[in-house]
Nucleic acid binder design. Structure first.
Lengths: 363, 363
DNA sequence: TTGTATGCGTTATCAG
DNA sequence: CTGATAACGCATACAA
């Protein structure tokens, strides 16, 4: 039942006024060294810690950042969260993490509610089909900055940090084409998401450049998770003729494709080439290891947090749209169609450095 | 520059006193229907939302839960966090997520600081070597409940939700022994962590029961990450005679073993059997798929959150130590030593249901 | 049943 | 430089 120690008690102990204590703590005025010492000593000995609540109420702003994400169990997001948190921590900001669970109403409720905490800023990876832009503008009009990550809701004109989705998808698709594939299929994410739409664009551009045409049934929309990727792959692989290569627009769905291929006894890459997007740590351990487009999750979060904190610091500049590069990482799930794997194209044996270590170094 | 709307404005708009508004919101007194309607209408039309800060300050408690974890990018933890968050959300509690980064001082600083937010309760997965029990007791003496998850710091006598670590390790080891292995090695987590120590105990017990003795060099301590697992595996696999089976005390380290084996051109399971712990979603996609001890991460978090909220609700009972069951999941990384894989023991082909779906269903 | 007034722990403004 | 004192937005005891 230790009562929390307040400024008042510090003031009494140090024999000064409460205002002086505040001045010492916030260096908001010069305090005579003698008093200053006494105050500091009192704070130390009594283990005083300012109430973040009272501070927030008074200052009308806290040191909390809100972060709303679709689902922390999607393995792409932890890295993003970590990037945010590391940057925030260094600047003494804390993160309230909210899983919108891909549910627009839950997302809206989080976004609305976070305002009541007087957060200093909001980071959001918008859910599919969410009509959230209005809520976000409410922040702007209360001068609480918002930065969108990874995707952008309809009608969003503010800051955003994204990756080169179209470019990455283009590279992956071109790679498949260069390996000789012409019957290519794609499994997209929910096309309402800007990143999913962009990836499809990249895929299509590569096809157009190579003058390859595919039927609409070779474009399957799924939900960025393993299960829906698996289902989509089953649909594709039961078609006749079936595709010789599938570009899955994220790794989870690519895993689903892997699983479907395995069940249908299709060898990868001999019978089916698979490329993914994300290049998660695990892609190098799958059977076969997965060729995938790397996107810098940690950097995405860290960059967004830095941008947000600039706004929090009051910096004014035109809405920024930061685009982080993607990069095709070739592994073993892609090969020529229906052919013996040529010498040297097969197993790639690399000792990769831990991605996290690499990413953190770049912060 | 929309000023936030306060109770006072609602009161004016509805033509009542601020106290009445409060009474309507909190149902803390019966309000005449007519006034009540006016207040509710005012709240709706003005988009009023109570300040969580002011409420917290006044009530001396918020609806935030603190959650301190070692590192969200360790793929075991997101499920735990998700379990916590789902339970918390349903009860209208929010989660402040803190990555201690396996750094005891960062952990301590988070734990100390969270108090200043007047959180309703604290959930913590303690870091290795952290002398945090004292800080946690400070919560108890301020009657803020604390529940430890997955591990327990030295000297912790309070609530905890753990898994049957020793039992799981015992099962995995016995399985290896039953396959005929006698030169078994183990790669443990940091032995200061109770869960790591428990897993080693289970391993040892299985060995003792089978009257198998191994040299101390076959017990390698690592850090629960892929890299340290990889290094430990290299040390083990360069020994003569080398182990025919390695039990890695979590899946990340098992992936490291897989990588080391691959580099040394050892076939798994023919030349080396590998068992892990966690049974992450990905274990079924690795090459070969990984035999591993499943621990219910989502349930771990959900259970801990429920226990914590009972305390938050003021329930009094003796400190509880909840033990969730573990379960050996056999896949393809374990086989008999130096032998042809017998018929039927080899490839396992199952269409497993998504773990997340299963876990959520159990909430 | 409703209104008024006080205080939660700070910060910030002003006299002194 | 330092000490009172008034908010910040809300809950609550008490008066009406």
């Amino acid at each position: 039942m230790t009562a929390t120690v307040t400024m008042r008690q510090i003031a009494e102990r140090a024999g000064v006024s409460i205002g002086t204590v505040s001045n010492v703590i916030n260096e908001t005025a010069i305090v005579r060294p003698k008093l200053r010492e006494r105050v500091i000593e009192a704070i130390r000995s009594m283990g005083y810690q300012p109430s973040a609540l009272a501070q927030g109420l008074r200052r009308n702003r806290t040191n909390m950042l809100g972060m709303v994400i679709p689902d922390i169990t999607n393995p792409f997001f932890p890295g993003v969260v970590r990037g945010v948190e590391d940057v925030a921590y260094k600047r003494s900001f804390r993160v309230i993490l909210c899983n919108a669970d891909n549910d627009p109403s839950k997302e809206a409720s989080y976004v609305r509610e976070l305002r009541s905490y007087h957060i200093a800023g909001l980071l959001i990876i918008p859910a599919a089909g969410a009509d959230i832009a209005g809520h976000l503008r409410a922040y702007a009009s209360a001068s609480v900055p918002v930065v969108c990550i990874d995707r952008v809701p309809d009608g969003w004109k503010g800051d955003a940090v994204l990756v080169a989705n179209a470019e990455g998808a283009y590279l992956a698709t071109r790679h498949l084409i260069q390996m000789g594939h012409t019957r290519l299929a794609v499994i997209t994410g929910p096309l309402k998401l800007t990143n999913a739409a962009e990836r499809l664009k990249g895929f299509t551009r590569a096809l157009n450049e190579a003058r390859i045409e595919i039927g609409p049934e070779f474009v399957q929309e799924a939900r960025f998770d393993t299960e829906s990727g698996y289902q989509a792959a089953l649909r594709l692989l039961r078609m006749l003729p079936r595709p010789t290569a599938i570009f899955a627009c994220n790794d989870l769905m690519a895993f689903g494709v892997l699983q479907a291929a395995r069940e249908l006894s299709l060898r990868c890459p001999e019978d089916l080439s698979i490329a993914g997007f994300d290049s998660l740590e695990f892609t190098k351990f799958t059977d076969p290891s997965l060729t995938s487009v790397y996107q810098p999750g940690y950097q995405l979060g860290a960059t967004a947090a830095r941008l947000l904190l600039q706004r929090v610091d009051g910096m004014r500049f035109a809405a920024k749209k930061v685009l982080l590069p993607t990069e095709l990482q070739k592994r073993n799930s892609v090969g020529p169609p229906n052919a013996i794997v040529p010498e040297g194209v097969g197993r790639i044996k690399v000792r990769e450095r831990s991605d996290l270590a690499r990413r953190k170094q770049q912060v």
